[in-house]
Simulated assay, not measured.
Amino acid sequence: MTATATKPTTTPVRSKASAGPDRSAGRRRSSTIIVTALLVVVALYFLIPVYWVFVASTKSTEDLFSTNGFWFAPTFSLWENIGRVVSYDDGIFGRWFLNSAIYAGVGALLATYFAAAGGYALAKYEFKGRNLVFGTILGGVLVPGTATALPLFLLFSQMGLANTYWSVLLPSLVSPFGLFLCRIYAQATVDTSLIEAARIDGAGELRIFHTIGLKVLTPALVTVFLFQLVGIWNNYFLPLVMLSDSELYPITLGLNNWLSQVDRLPEFYELTTGGVLLSIIPLSIAMVVLQRFWRGGLTEGAVK
């Protein structure tokens, strides 16, 4: 009788080389707690003023100064305050809201398009003096808007454009920062082989820009658009210099006009807080709606 030897079974040991990269770096509990705490602090820094505005807009003038500023009053007056805001002075707030939508919406859209076109051209076309043009435009980032408001006012006065929509809209169409961002992004993401392939297929330069360039530049365009939208919507000094007709005021100038009257008419506190609450709604909606393009646009036009 012969015994058959059984071969011992061994479980393969996975080597460290084939185990894949170590992804445990930066996941220590202490660093996670610190990062989370910093993010909470930053979130509170931005959310607490918004919360205060909402709470204040639910109070009457008496409750605004006699109750805790960070908690609601016994009487909830939000809808009454909003009703006064939209009906005061024959609905002047609605006119200010529409003016801000025109200034910010049209200005941000056209400024984004011009920045994309300029940045794409500076990144993908070779021509003499390209770096000089870019450096000159980049210098505009260093010039504050308050420094150019008075020269622009004098220029528009001579052209007959002062105290018109154009006096606020035209300066909003220029975004040196947007052009800088679009140029850098186009250099990194718009592949030259895509452009050459489109040219071989017979596409013109404008068609290439609109069908390839704009799609690849989507994350940068959304960033530029949001920066311009928020900047124009919150702009106060330029309309203050350019406009004298209250019918042309944006929300910022109109609310400041109401705030200047609270000393003699305390009920303007209710109008001001209610108007501020309504003024932040469009920016919040734009941020929520457009944030998905930051993620979705990162792979648009990618070369396989």
Results as ranks from 00 to 15, higher is better:
143 V>S: 07
243 L>C: 03
245 D>H: 00
71 W>M: 10
137 I>N: 03
108 A>P: 01
132 L>D: 06
249 Y>V: 00
210 H>C: 07
133 V>Y: 06
83 G>N: 13
79 W>D: 01
174 V>R: 07
293 F>S: 10
253 L>V: 04
225 F>D: 06
251 I>T: 01
23 R>Q: 11
75 T>Y: 07
85 V>W: 15
20 G>K: 03
275 G>N: 00
56 A>Y: 05
190 V>R: 12
137 I>L: 12
285 I>C: 11
255 L>C: 04
63 D>S: 13
124 K>V: 13
131 N>L: 10
85 V>H: 09
278 L>R: 03
83 G>E: 08
123 A>H: 07
159 M>N: 04
95 R>P: 08
86 V>E: 01
143 V>P: 12
198 A>Q: 08
247 E>A: 07
54 F>N: 11
167 S>G: 00
304 K>A: 08
23 R>A: 15
94 G>W: 14
150 L>P: 11
128 K>P: 05
80 E>S: 14
13 V>N: 11
234 N>C: 11
286 A>Q: 08
62 E>H: 13
44 L>I: 15
187 Q>M: 14
100 S>G: 01
247 E>H: 03
36 T>A: 15
257 N>Y: 15
220 A>T: 06
190 V>A: 11
80 E>R: 06
221 L>V: 01
212 I>L: 02
40 V>Q: 00
52 W>D: 14
267 E>V: 14
166 W>K: 00
16 K>M: 12
50 V>L: 15
74 P>I: 05
113 Y>N: 02
165 Y>A: 02
48 I>R: 07
251 I>G: 01
89 D>I: 13
201 D>T: 03
25 A>P: 10
15 S>R: 06
98 L>I: 13
262 V>M: 05
119 G>F: 07
50 V>A: 10
164 T>R: 02
114 F>C: 10
212 I>R: 03
255 L>A: 06
79 W>I: 13
215 K>E: 01
236 Y>R: 06
86 V>S: 04
137 I>C: 02
235 N>W: 01
283 L>W: 00
112 T>M: 07
270 E>P: 11
218 T>G: 02
198 A>S: 09
278 L>F: 07
299 T>R: 08
221 L>E: 02
13 V>K: 08
14 R>K: 11
107 G>S: 01
16 K>P: 04
211 T>K: 06
146 T>A: 15
278 L>M: 05
266 P>K: 09
46 F>K: 12
103 Y>K: 02
271 L>E: 05
286 A>L: 15
13 V>Q: 06
216 V>I: 14
204 G>S: 07
291 Q>R: 12
79 W>R: 05
4 T>E: 13
154 L>P: 04
49 P>G: 05
260 S>L: 05
74 P>A: 13
183 R>S: 02
168 V>T: 02
89 D>W: 03
178 G>F: 07
241 V>T: 00
147 A>C: 08
64 L>N: 03
154 L>T: 09
38 L>N: 12
290 L>A: 08
66 S>A: 12
212 I>K: 01
268 F>N: 14
16 K>V: 14
230 V>T: 13
210 H>T: 15
46 F>G: 15
208 I>F: 09
67 T>S: 14
135 G>I: 10
193 S>K: 11
